[in-house]
Design a protein around this nucleic acid. Structure first.
Lengths: 197, 197
DNA sequence: TATTATAGTAAACAAAAGGTCACTTGTCAA
DNA sequence: TTGACAAGTGACCTTTTGTTTACTATAATA
């Protein structure tokens, strides 16, 4: 029970920070959303900033656990069609999972204020995906599925358009379905360009 | 003198909102940065929100003036090298002009809170550049400089990676030089793929 | 010249915000 | 049974914040 509330506070903080930003969130509202009174929160965290730091700790740890090491690299697709399938599977998770959406929004809102958020934002929005697909494209080139080229450059060219549309989904959720279609169309166009026929 | 202060307030608001966000900015600090006392600001705007709305009005009008109509489309480059030159010229302006940087940051910070910011953010970050380059690529295809393809798809594939690196510059300004180099490398790689040899 | 609008100041206010403290209640170990 | 502790409450405090108001100086206008 003890630790439960501590984690519920972080969950509520993620929700509110992602909606209103750190400065736009107050602990009365946060407490109320948990059915607590504000002083109750201070039994678990000594300040608003401590909540923020604990939330960031959690986000950083989660990222390290799920995307941080080579263990978590997806298997290299063994066909061009499988590349699109893998891509769409990853995209569907990332644009529909509320927790992931809120994490991206928080990082978007706090990237200019907090150095750790800044660093994690760059991983989430740019380098993380690029590294994964650098590995994938290198593997697919080895298998003769994709034309020999600089795998890091291809990964960059492949993932950043997808990222742009994921950001669009965060900003304008009603466009999510269209964005997903566009990502699939882009993936197929990419394959038509760089895939070995 | 009257209108001068009114515009200086908007300039200061842009500066502070882009740094600390709307909720993280207070009018005492804003006034002080202009050598005014806080009540002085209320002679020109009736509330903090009115300042925000006037700033957005200005940003929207600026965007419409500079990128809104077909008049402002750059000339279609007449060589592949000229495409890279045009790109780098646009990129250099956009990542070094403080006002443009601050505009992007404000839109980044307020896109989830304000509908007009949301809409302008999508133009700035996604559709605006794509439209310009759709026109450019269509023109270059007509001139036989680029392989016949869907110009909108190529524009999307060309501009979103560049946008991703522009965002990186906003987030981590010390990486600006590297990002510019990477954009140029990407542009040349793109040309190597889609350009007519 | 008298007047009036403009732009600014200084002080005050009410509400919201972050945070503290004394107190209660339930749980568990000695 | 008792005592200690964790978790939550409600009242309170202080600071920050958005906003208002009464006043002043200045410059244009009738």
């Amino acid at each position: 029970m003890a630790n439960d509330t501590k984690e519920r506070i972080l969950a509520a903080a993620l929700e509110l920070f992602s909606k209103n930003g750190y400065a736009g969130t107050n602990i009365r509202e946060l407490s109320a959303s948990l059915g607590l009174v504000k002083s109750g929160v201070y039994k678990h965290y000594e300040s608003k900033e401590a909540i923020w730091n604990a939330l960031l700790d959690q986000m950083i740890a989660y990222y390290a656990d799920h995307f941080g090491s080579a263990d978590h690299l997806p298997p290299v697709p063994d066909s061009l069609e499988a590349l699109t399938r893998l891509t769409m599977q990853m995209v569907n998770i990332t644009v529909h999972d509320e927790k992931i959406i809120m994490t991206r929004k928080v990082l978007t809102l706090e990237q200019f204020r907090d150095d750790r958020a800044r660093e994690l934002a760059t991983k989430h929005f740019l380098t993380g995906l690029t590294e994964i697909f650098t590995h994938i494209f290198a593997g697919m080139m080895d298998k003769g599925l994709i034309l020999r080229d600089d795998p890091a450059m291809l990964a960059f060219a492949y993932t950043t358009p997808i990222s742009a549309l994921i950001h669009l989904c965060d900003r304008e959720p009603e466009k999510t379905e269209d964005a997903i279609d566009q990502i699939e169309a882009f993936s197929r166009h990419f394959i038509a360009t760089y895939g070995v026929k």
